[in-house]
Design a protein around this nucleic acid. Sequence first.
DNA 1: CAGTGAGCGAGCTTCCGCTTGACTT
Length: 773
Amino acid sequence: MIKNLVIVESPAKARTIEKFLGKDYTVMSSMGHVVDLSKKDLSVDIENGFEPKYEISPDKKKVVTNLKKSARDAEWIWLATDEDREGEAISWHLVNALKIKEDKTKRIVFHEITKTAIDEAIKNPRQIDKNLVNAQQARRVLDRLVGYELSPLLWRKVKPGLSAGRVQSVAVRLIVEREEEIRNFKKTSSYRITAQLILKEGKGQKIVNAELPKRFKTKEEALEFLKSCQGAKFKVDKVEKKPAQKSPAPPFTTSTLQQEASRKLGFSVANTMRIAQNLYESGKITYMRTDSVNISKMAMAQASQEIKSLYGDEYVRTRQFRTRSKGAQEAHEAIRPTFMNKRQVEGNVQEKRLYELIWKRTLASQMAEAKIEKTNVDISISTSKEKLVAKGEIIKFDGFLKVYLEGRDDDEQEEKAGVLPPLKKGDELDLKEMLATERFTKHPPRYSEASLVKKMEELGIGRPSTYAPTISTIQKREYVVKEDRNGEFREYDYISLQGDKISEQKKKEMSGVEKGKLFPTDLGTLVNKFLMQFFNNIMKYNFTAKVEKEFDEIAAGDKKWNKMIGEFYSPFHDKIQETAEKTKKFSGERLLGKDPESGKNVFAKIGRYGPMVQIGDTESEEKPKFAGMRKGQSIETITLEEALKLFDFPRSIGEYEGKELTVNIGRFGPYVRHDNQFFSLKKEDDPAGIGQERAIELIEEKRKKASENTIREFDKDKKVKVLKGRYGPYIKIGRKNFKIPKDQDPEKLSLEDCYKIAEDPKNTPRKRYRKKK
DNA sequence: CAGTGAGCGAGCTTCCGCTTGACTT
């Protein structure tokens, strides 16, 4: 017999709370939502006030059965789900799914898992807030309507299996538009003047680095300036000292954890969440899906204690941070170590590193500001009215910097102001070298997974529990790809003035290197174009913020949820119908020009198998010619010349062993074909230039490898082979592979042995899990 | 694993937010 049944959302939370509550309380978890709209169909009754048709989620049947059993004979049921819209709905769903009377339930909430917070919560039960539940219904129904009406439209107009939604489509838009900005970006260059000056100090000398605040637009101007400095005298004109302060960053939320783990540890967003989940489940950190920067009084006291014992009293400065992110619901604490005095944890390397990051961030957040002294020194030039400026920075008191400094996104690290030698007005300086270096403006940066999350949070789009899944969805749909791109060398001018001598050089630097950045695909660009054209309001960056405001009104009881949905739905649905009827297939066709040979139009567009180019109109009598695009080419950027080149294949390049050699470009890239066999070209091979000699090389190379990997062959049955593979030896019969049992020696297998092994179903490969798109 | 770009048309695909395992390769 259970006296009190407490239901929370997470099992790890249940374990902790049970310890605080004593033996009169049994704590169980719902594992999140237990009730939802059916996945199979719309499950919203449009005619009847958008009444949702709920069902117990298939994967929660067991959970519900167990909860029901315990709830039946419990005296009181305490609904302790999170204090936000979704949590309130979960409580309401539980009441219905467990078929319990509402007067047997008490709704309680807490934002932190500490004994005091829980005791306090138990003392202040309330009833379920139906308005808040309705706000959640509105959110759920809106997302369903948008997702389940837009996606099928895309299947018809663009390609089957695609998807669209309030969150994912805007995420794709951000990436597509950033790429457009980058494409339209015109880089310009300017000339930056820097100088190394020498301060004589008794016997020794000190270097002072200075820079001209202004830049020159042209090389001529820069050169002119350097010339004007030939033989000039340099003198300290003004020394200005200013104190400054630096404050620590707030404790981690999901989004900031993802960003820092990406910047400092190179973790992907999904990886960070997986590791954090492990740390949470083993009780090392607090909950990892949160938008709150608050930490409990207890944690604050522990942090303060820890700082004191490690660094001393003057390093302690506890503070509570205020959230600045849009739509934060703050049902949890910030992400912090459960025990601040635990500086390291057991676990694998990644867990250790992530924990250390969380520990440092939390500790630093309760430490004193760093005190800095900034120095600006103006240096006059006897031959010019321009002045050089030297900047210095001294840390007077390191404070939180002793432990942790937040990383930055911009890859060009700001030139760090170092320590300046002591300078005073009137000091004379000798010029060691003055440089004019050509610098280029940079296009806005492409998004990484983590910086996309940051942007989404700023816009109030998505929630801590969905950032990682959304990013994987838009990649799974092939709207965007995460890629590295090689940079290119570019030349820049480097002009030096040393003594009285001016010398000019061209130097080379790498530019445009991208690592782990998100690029839109042609499909993503196309879907975005479609949605922007016909469903502009949903694609607006403030659409979510706008509906959130209405959800708040519903939660406050000022608006009926189905009225709000009705106002949205009717124009939306009209547009869906209109688009379905009036538009043709959306292929993103772009006219590149005319084919000089035939005079026909050349297009780039998306076909059934991806981006392609086409010579001739689709409507014309004569069938157009088609060719697939190469990797790295895109509808938006391909030129007429590049497109025409794609029609030069297949190309005959001679023969070998009496059989013809041809080069072609297939689904998996360029290849050489010989005697009905395929040989992929290497990265460095150019399909347009490759000749017979190189083709033979490729063939021989592949043959050699194959023979090295062959353990046994049989003259009687050429289809049967024993081969060495990535996972060890295996048998190949025709196109099928078979495992070799551990007790058999692959070197000694006879043909009969092979047949026997192949017959045993134990050795047949498992049905390959087909990649879902 | 490799050429296609549409034509028959069954049956399938899809949203966001809350939460964990149970599973391969």
